[in-house]
Design a protein around this nucleic acid. Sequence first.
DNA 1: AAGTACCCGATAATGATTATTATTAAGGTA
DNA 2: TACCTTAATAATAATCATTATCGGGTACTT
Lengths: 132, 132
Amino acid sequence: MKTIERKKKRNTKQKAIVFQVVQDSHDHPTAETVYERAKRELPTISLGTVYRILKELVPEGKIREIIVNKQSRFDPKTEFHHHFICKKCGKIEDVKTPLCRYTCKKLEQKGYIIEEIEYKFYGLCDKCAAEN
Amino acid sequence: MKTIERKKKRNTKQKAIVFQVVQDSHDHPTAETVYERAKRELPTISLGTVYRILKELVPEGKIREIIVNKQSRFDPKTEFHHHFICKKCGKIEDVKTPLCRYTCKKLEQKGYIIEEIEYKFYGLCDKCAAEN
DNA sequence: AAGTACCCGATAATGATTATTATTAAGGTA
DNA sequence: TACCTTAATAATAATCATTATCGGGTACTT
């Protein structure tokens, strides 16, 4: 009897390109934007494929997903960090901020398990603030 | 041609009921849930009206909107506070936490204007943690 | 009462995302 | 090599929350 062997996941051209596009994007693109950029490399790629691959890459720890205005955006930076969102121009910027140990401890004392923390700062970026 | 000026917005039965429903809800209901509860008081109310009124009440400062999993939820508590979201049962709980003055100051020094801050803690609530 | 702003319920439209389906292509096997 | 099995793809349809539209009515103002 043969042992059932798990097949290797293929590393397809599509997956490599989608990953590379996110790697090269520092503007927190949407899936649609990733699709447009990927199409420049591989014009036949489909939007559904881009969505599927992005959703694979996140649990693999290769990219991060952040949600702004009910829309998914993708970030090549996987280290723990947070975001500032400009309400006027829509720019999303990385923000380093310490997390509140006190609040976490208090929740954990209640028996809660904290797995993820997300801080979002909304307002006007320097350029938009200067225009006002 | 004369323009008629309207001074006060009408406080309709629909608006009063939607507001009351949110006031009485401590579970951060969705628009759909608010609609269901409002229907118990006024069976003819429509979902579109509930959406419209909820969207009015937010800038009026009567209720707060929070977004969880790309869905709007409504909160009678308008004071500054944050949320814990259980990844298993979906429960949303209010969390009091100090905001990071240092991070805000650093952003403001760069010329940014911060208008809103949102902290979200994701994980397992006490009950769901105990079940694991 | 007349004129008009405002609000309503019903319904259609939208936008982002997910599911489905038929096709293609890769890897292993004989 | 040819064949078989299965995964990955492109194209398309379906879904879900939300927003826009429309026609009719209500109430405010003069």
